[in-house]
Computed example of a mutant assay.
Amino acid sequence: MENKLIISLSPHIHNGDSVEKNMYGVLIALAPAFIVSLIYFGLGALVVTVTSVIACLFFEWAIGKYIMKSEVSTICDGSAAITGVLLAFNLPSNLPIWIILLGALFAIGVSKMSFGGLGNNPFNPALAGRVFLLLSFPVQMTTWPKIGQLTSYIDAETAATPLSIMKGVIKGAPGFSLDQLPDAFNLFIGNNGGCLGEVSAAALLVGLVYMLMKRIITWHIPGSILLAVTVFSGIMYLVNPQIYVSPLTQLLSGGLMLGAIFMATDYVTSPMTNKGMLIYGTCIGLLTVVIRLFGAYPEGMSFAILIMNAFTPLINTYCKPKRFGEVAKKK
């Protein structure tokens, strides 16, 4: 039998990474936060998450098969499942199923598949779906169930979140005081209201450690976001501690940890170089603090990431890596 030398394009040796491996690694990293959401929200967390994941998988399959006429199915690569989980993690646990379906359709159909599918979308699909729902259904998207109602779903009793309390104090609304905020330990473990995936900073940090150990992400984006939020919120806290909370409270509240660890680090919508990642993360941190303190909405993480998604191509152009073999020009 004649042996033939097969010549192919580089690289010929790789480290075993693949889209599927990294995507399922992210899903494993999200598992602690999902478990905590089940502990605090029970049935509501299960219904919202399962609905969102199934809807995202279905819409990706249906659009790919019947609209894009693709012969290759992408629902098994893990990207649609991650979009479903992250979308669910940005929703309250009492959101009606039909609204979840609309959010999943927008996330997959508009924000992802309309641009050509995985690798082509300029904006994070889950965040785009979340912002679409927030603008379309502001009442349902800002009605937060109290934790501990494990068997309740639509009829769950509601309460204010830490971010809504902070915003009420900043605006001088009656009935709001910083004394109503949970202490740092309760914020850290998740003993407070909010979206499914934002309540427990501890569970999200476990996922961060796992992804860093597996080299799914690097420290540059989450590290720069957390540092920027610490610095800018710390300055405002020193200016007026009567209405602005400490940097630690800002870091542990709302969707900051979820966004910094799992949303801003999306491969497709974040810069490619380390320098670009640091610029990107610092701007997200600054925008988040500005929107939280001076904007109309209590939370600014989603808007900050989407804004910087739009600047990613510009950052990539500015922060190009040095070409192999290039000689630096003498000044």
Score class of each variant (00 low, 15 high):
147 I>W: 09
200 S>Y: 04
127 L>M: 11
71 E>D: 10
185 F>P: 06
143 T>C: 08
195 C>Q: 11
185 F>K: 03
186 N>Q: 06
119 G>S: 11
199 V>G: 14
171 K>S: 06
76 C>Q: 00
139 V>E: 02
160 A>V: 12
157 E>V: 14
130 R>V: 10
190 G>N: 11
142 T>E: 11
173 A>L: 09
152 S>V: 05
171 K>Y: 15
115 F>N: 05
153 Y>M: 10
181 L>G: 04
130 R>L: 02
178 L>C: 00
88 A>V: 03
156 A>D: 13
82 I>V: 07
140 Q>D: 08
100 I>E: 14
194 G>D: 04
79 S>G: 03
191 N>C: 02
73 S>C: 01
178 L>G: 00
92 P>E: 10
86 L>F: 13
182 P>M: 08
108 I>C: 07
69 K>Y: 14
116 G>Q: 03
191 N>K: 03
70 S>Y: 02
104 A>R: 01
149 Q>M: 02
141 M>W: 13
201 A>E: 04
73 S>L: 02
158 T>C: 09
84 G>F: 00
131 V>Y: 09
113 M>D: 00
75 I>G: 09
156 A>M: 13
71 E>M: 15
64 G>W: 11
86 L>K: 01
131 V>S: 13
197 G>E: 02
148 G>F: 05
191 N>S: 00
117 G>S: 09
119 G>N: 11
72 V>E: 12
69 K>H: 12
183 D>Y: 04
151 T>E: 01
131 V>A: 10
88 A>N: 10
159 A>Y: 15
99 I>C: 12
125 P>Y: 00
157 E>L: 06
166 M>F: 10
65 K>Y: 06
86 L>V: 07
75 I>H: 14
182 P>S: 11
139 V>H: 11
81 A>D: 07
117 G>F: 00
172 G>Y: 07
68 M>K: 07
192 N>C: 15
183 D>N: 02
172 G>S: 12
163 L>P: 07
82 I>P: 06
73 S>I: 08
73 S>G: 10
74 T>Y: 14
165 I>L: 13
110 V>C: 06
177 S>D: 04
96 P>V: 14
147 I>G: 01
166 M>I: 07
184 A>K: 14
178 L>N: 00
137 F>N: 15
103 G>T: 05
130 R>M: 06
142 T>P: 07
202 A>T: 13
98 W>I: 09
99 I>M: 13
199 V>K: 15
171 K>I: 04
176 F>H: 05
188 F>S: 10
65 K>N: 01
146 K>S: 12
197 G>R: 05
171 K>M: 11
138 P>L: 12
120 N>D: 04
156 A>G: 05
93 S>G: 12
165 I>Y: 01
180 Q>E: 04
176 F>R: 02
113 M>N: 01
191 N>M: 02
92 P>G: 12
81 A>K: 04
117 G>R: 00
74 T>H: 13
165 I>K: 09
101 L>I: 02
177 S>H: 05
83 T>S: 02
162 P>A: 13
114 S>D: 00
101 L>R: 07
190 G>C: 10
152 S>G: 05
168 G>V: 08
127 L>Q: 05
94 N>I: 14
133 L>Q: 12
82 I>R: 01
150 L>C: 11
86 L>G: 02
110 V>H: 00
182 P>H: 10
194 G>C: 11
